[in-house]
Design a protein around this nucleic acid. Structure first.
Lengths: 347, 347
DNA sequence: TCTTAACATGGAACCGGTTCCAATTACTGT
DNA sequence: ACAGTAATTGGAACCGGTTCCATGTTAAGA
């Protein structure tokens, strides 16, 4: 139908304008053109004018790759993160993005779908795509991999995972678990259930730390641990709902549930609703993460500052890049209990 | 506390190994090393062995930037998309990522927070970060900007927006709106409300196309348009809930609501629940987008294949890159009505 | 055994910038 | 007017790869 746009094809074959073309046109040396491009003050106003005119006339655009090669920096940072399904990853990504937007750095993302890919990225990344620095979200490297990062000389920051040799930004998950449990205890609960991931095959260990916090808070006030109140399952809402139903059908059901993630907590709320159990008067529910949706349901939860963790990680990476910091170093993101309306004293 | 890891600093200053170092060590020419690196068959097994050993011993990693400069390709594609808050953007991003993961291309993302930034990216992008191709999600370029993309020679594909000069992957929003409305009509509804964004200041025009589809479906069966049944508001769930309450409190409330997005539809479901209006027996609700959550609530909705649109856009971009296609070209993503359980004949 | 083609290899030139050094020009003070 | 210093400027060398061409080697064919 439409005529093939010949001009486009022609343009592609035109050799691109280089800095030497500009220099020739402006009758100056390439060095001078380069100085103009980089706002070097030692260029006279007259010459600068000439060069700018030539640039304009030739519609010249400097080639960033060539620049990168000669200055040795790519002005790019990479981020490795799990497949973008969970809101928590996205929230952290947004934090990273927020800091980068006001910098001159670009962000290239590597999504990890499966463990094999994780290893591939971890061990082979710098070969294919040179970045000035690297952020890794929620994916703990093993010793060998950590060593690779150190050795490769690429500044690296872990967000939401931990390694003694690297810089990292983590939440104190033990403390978070303790915080949530203590809050329920303070409200007067003693029958407190815990709903979590499978601990034995942890995707990453945060869940088991939260569990430790839970156990320790119980011990503090000498509430005996009741294995019936401990449930493991998939990380999605659906399976949490099923588990919660089992839990609430016990002969002696808990008066409060601590869910290791908000997604699960929402599943519990639904189970309660279906079983006509009133929240919070008959059952208290506390979540973990403070995802956006949690606000919407007025879920009491532990806010682990997801967005801020992205911000902090990126700033830490900048500190590494400018030699204001040296690995290893470790920062904790602040934890905050958001007491909303799914928790109350027991009946 | 911890001793400063001196080794790290030392490493950084070590000049990196180059292809010439390898050539010297293996006692071959640089060309040969390059051929080994690129699996060029015209290298004898013996020489290849020698080179590989040298690479191993020197722990050599080729510099991708240098490679990019000489081959003239960056193996990177860029994506411009709105701030990552809406699930629909993320879903499309995942589609893009899915295709890229099995390719040799990297993805660099540019998030647009505000209109000024959009313009900045649109007009200045190729200067700072050379990419081989560009994907643009949901952000329609004006004529000037479209021209810039054509002129710059960077293959560009629009996803979820449209321009006569560029390649694009779009959903037929008029048809989608018609589809949803027709479905309600077929169920027997005649009092059908429409809940949408503010149409007069459209972030992008899809919403108003859906509205056109809605109107046209009504006309087909000569149902007069009732302005009371038309409501505009913010794009979030909360405001949809408020609007829905107004709508359902009318003297003659609608028997069905078509929401221009799933987020809104969920808000409507909540409003109905609060007002003790049974869905679907007393009220039918249909959404748009088929976000993940919608499945969870069994929401009837129009599936506009968000993930697939990312996939298709990326494939189209590859076609451009390999000259298998020429702009402009246009593809429609398939639309599918997901009849789930929030719709039924009117009472 | 000699010719010829196929194969393997070294290395200069190139990609398009930056940077540094030497050379030129402009300006200062006496 | 002139030395001495500061401000500009040109351009070669460099960043680290790829590619092409000329050359040397080997194997096949007559």
């Amino acid at each position: 139908m439409e005529p093939v746009p010949i001009t486009v094809t022609k343009m592609k074959d035109t050799p691109p304008t280089t800095i030497r073309d500009v220099a020739r046109k402006a009758k100056v040396g390439v060095g001078t053109v380069s100085r103009v491009l980089n706002d070097n003050p030692s260029v006279s106003e007259k010459t600068r004018e000439k060069v700018l005119t030539a640039i304009e006339e030739l519609d010249y655009t400097p080639n960033p790759i060539a620049r990168q090669l000669s200055v040795g920096r790519t002005l790019t940072i990479g981020i490795i993160l799990p497949y973008l399904t969970l809101p928590s990853y996205i929230e952290r990504l947004r934090g990273v993005q927020h800091v980068l937007a006001s910098s001159e750095y670009d962000l290239v993302i590597f999504c990890v779908d499966d463990p094999a890919q994780k290893n591939a990225y971890f061990q082979d990344l710098s070969r294919k795509s040179r970045v000035d620095g690297m952020l890794i979200v929620s994916l703990p490297p093993d010793d060998f991999q950590a060593d690779y990062f150190t050795r490769s000389g690429i500044p690296t920051v872990l967000i939401d995972s931990d390694h003694s040799k690297l810089c990292c930004v983590v939440a104190d998950d033990i403390e978070g678990g303790r915080m949530a449990t203590r809050y329920l205890i303070e409200l007067g609960h003693r029958k407190i259930a815990y709903l979590t991931d499978y601990l034995e095959t942890p995707f990453h260990p945060a869940m088991s730390y939260r569990y430790q916090g839970y156990r320790s808070a119980l011990e503090e006030v000498e509430i005996p641990y009741n294995p019936d109140y401990f449930m493991q399952g998939e990380r999605d809402r659906e399976s949490a709902r099923a588990l919660a139903k089992k839990l609430l059908s016990l002969d002696d059901p808990p008066s409060a549930v601590f869910a290791a993630s908000d997604a699960r907590a929402l599943g519990i709320l639904e189970a309660a609703q279906e079983m006509k159990i009133k929240v919070p008067s008959e059952l208290s529910v506390i979540g973990y993460d403070a995802i956006r949706e949690s606000a919407y349901y007025n879920l009491t939860t532990i806010d682990q500052s997801l967005f801020d963790s992205g911000v902090m990680g990126t700033q830490m990476l900048f500190d590494l890049l400018t030699n204001r910091a040296q690995p290893p170093c470790k920062k904790h993101v602040p934890l905050k209990l958001l007491a909303r309306s799914t928790t109350a004293p027991p009946p």
